[in-house]
Design a protein around this nucleic acid. Structure first.
Lengths: 338, 338
DNA sequence: ATGAAAGCGCTAACAC
DNA sequence: GTGTTAGCGCTTTCAT
């Protein structure tokens, strides 16, 4: 296939419609190039992945995910987009991704054998549970956790900044004059705990432990039940920050059934920013997590660590957290009460 | 000067004592190279900074620090090492670092003008207080926070993982059978709050709010006073996690004055891993923060973002946290009581 | 500010 | 598995 060949300066020149010399100047910063031409050249170079470390081409990265993570609905949605970003990047870098699914409870020796047998640049572990960390820490090969981190910092990781995402969601409601802001969650995973911390950071003096509402499961149905119960218990609130879009979807249904009008009487905001939030009614405001970027950057980090392979130097272990972005749709509005 | 010239493959070949072809093979992964030769070549390449983005050579980065951060004893110690790592890396990359100190309360327009006037690759902001974040967010130039982060994630940052560092310190004492572990702190800065969270993460069921002891100031003297008071109040504990080495130093003095023998009756662990901990008596066990690496990586991140300059694409904003490492010396030991 | 072409460094083919 | 050498891609000079 033609795409196996790496990008050359001539390819960029052709694409932009200038000479190779101009491209060289624009990229190497030597002489004079008109600003707009330089911008187009530099953009093209990035997009065409000019100067990809050639030594990586054709190598393989093992992408391992627990079976649980793949079948779990919400996670699998999320995972799908992470994989999309990962695949796109892998294609651009000409790196092979090999998939592997294991039983969460028992990653047995199969995965370890696989890692040992074939020569992978590294292993990407998707959304691992803490129970697997021990196992992952002992793989004899660069490991990067994707969408999860190692609290002991023995493994590098790439994930969204869950804490800031939740803080952003909460601040959005505070800016709309909401005071009693419920945090709808299904606690358990550490990423979700971080989201709760973000909510609490912004709540500050407004914090009230009763405002934390637990769903029995990570499903819209469970969220619906939890909101109905909170209302029946007489909990007062005008806004809901849901720890995930799927919980927000359940909250919308429950609030609608209870006679609240969203966003007039009640604001709801999710965290995840899954595209299907668009099709809820009303379309769900959320904090969008850069899922594709998480996937792409994980691969970049493995590639970076590959530079250090067969070297006496170690790449410092790092946790990378990516910024999230408010995706305003129609479920949040000014608090008119009080 | 000769060092202005970038490293060529011939330089590495000469250094390692092989032909240029062998170096090329080792780095580009083509043919066969003996493993140990390849390792030496790859190590040399990293050390000699082979293939540094040439377009950065000669460019400038502005390093801005608040006057407060520079005069504050503990911070300035810390800062010194961060700067060391930064300078070393800058020299290797042939990048100029320009220093700038401003009044913390009022970064006035001078800094903004400076950024606008000269063409810097970017600005590194050292240990900024939250009050400065607004200002930093509005600089018209890539900004990276060094040893501090932006909770709103509008700015990228590089810092140690304070939470994991404190968790590591606490876990070290828990592993030595300590149960009542005091957290000695001077709260205020967010980085210190993160350290407290790390302590609390590991304390779990052992947590007791009385175990958080506040010093009036970020000095050994204040820590000493705080520990004396805690002892006088009858607080029971066998271990101390200090939020910083300087506080740990004060704790050592106070415990010694109160008749405790460290590490036999009482364990003390600091966080920072400043070299002078070696000269305390007994030498202070601490969690070492990779200060030089924080400096070096900050520069790398600015360089990375420079790739995106004059481009239609934006580098995703990211928070990078680096792993810390236990530096065992002589102030911690098994809890013999109970 | 840009293109043509010379010059230089890296890679790949070949020899052993 | 490593050195030699030809060829190719990138940079730099020169001309406009």
């Amino acid at each position: 296939m033609a795409s196996t060949k790496r990008t050359r300066i001539a390819d960029i020149a052709k694409q932009v419609g200038v000479s190779t010399a101009t491209v060289s100047r624009a990229l190497s910063g030597g002489g004079y190039v008109r600003d707009d031409v330089a911008a187009r050249i530099r953009t093209a170079a990035l997009e065409m992945n000019y100067r990809v470390p050639q030594n990586l081409i054709g190598h393989k990265v093992l992408l391992a995910a627990s079976h649980d993570a793949m079948i779990d609905f919400q996670r699998s949605q999320f995972t799908m987009y992470v994989l999309e970003g990962l695949r796109d990047r892998a294609q651009k870098l000409n790196i092979q991704i090999e998939n592997y699914t294991f039983q969460s409870s028992d990653p047995n020796s199969e995965l370890r054998d696989k890692v040992a047998s074939d020569d992978f640049l590294g292993v990407l572990l998707l959304t691992v549970d803490d129970a697997l960390l021990d196992f992952a820490q002992n793989l004899a090969c660069p490991v990067t956790l994707v969408n999860g981190d190692d609290p002991e910092m023995l493994l590098s990781s790439v994930s969204p900044c869950n804490r800031s995402a939740a803080a952003m969601a909460t601040k959005h409601l505070v800016d709309l004059n909401h005071e009693r802001i419920l945090f709808l969650t299904k606690s358990g995973r550490r990423t979700i705990q971080r989201r709760q911390e973000g909510w609490q950071d912004v709540m500050g003096a407004r914090f009230d432990p009763n405002l934390v509402v637990e769903a029995a499961d990570w499903t819209a149905e469970a969220a619906q039940i939890a909101i109905h119960k909170a209302l029946k218990d007489g909990l007062e609130f005008t806004g809901v920050v849901a720890a995930g879009d799927i919980l927000a979807a359940g909250a919308l249904v429950a609030l609608n059934q209870a006679g609240f009008k969203v966003p007039d009487d009640m604001s709801v905001i999710g965290i995840d920013g899954l595209p299907q939030g668009e099709y809820l009614s009303p379309p769900l405001t959320s904090v969008a997590i850069p899922m594709q970027a998480v996937g792409a950057l994980s691969l970049d980090l493995i590639c970076e660590s590959a530079k250090y392979l067969e070297t006496d130097i170690r790449l410092p272990v790092r946790r990378i957290e990516l910024a999230c972005k408010l995706a305003p749709r129609e479920t949040t509005g000014k608090n008119k009460g009080g």
